[in-house]
Amino acid sequence: MFKDKPIKILLAKPGIDGHDRGILVLAKAFRDAGMEVIYVGLLPTPEEVVDTAINEDVDVVALSLLNGAHMTVFKKVADLMKEKGVKDIAVVGGGTIPDADKPKLEKLGISGNYGPGTPIAEIIKHITERAAEIRKLKATGE
């Protein structure tokens, strides 16, 4: 199903966080895996992330934070999506996220939440699954 149109993914570090080693590696890895990758650079606000995701019509938004602010900032992104009625974009997360926070993020619709040391293949598999759900939703909705 992704043959004609590759997965389109927005990688973003919302909030105030300069730790971009991981997200730069993932951007390359996702591109090598055939995805269309958008990375807007550092320091976007949650509003900017959501607006870019909508304007670019992406399948997936991947959020990364290593500054401990994920419970506030990821939530802001999820809330804004809800507010704007966006249902056809999947949100995944990653960074230094304690186990205890993962179920809370899942509840907000943010899945994955991978920590350091996760194999890239595992992350790509998850994104591909989420994107497939989204494409299906779009197909039935349209």
Partner: peptide, 10 residues
């Protein structure tokens, strides 16, 4: 507002 959730974290 940008500092919300980041105070004292790092």
């Amino acid at each position: 507002t940008r500092a919300d959730g980041e105070i004292g974290k790092c």
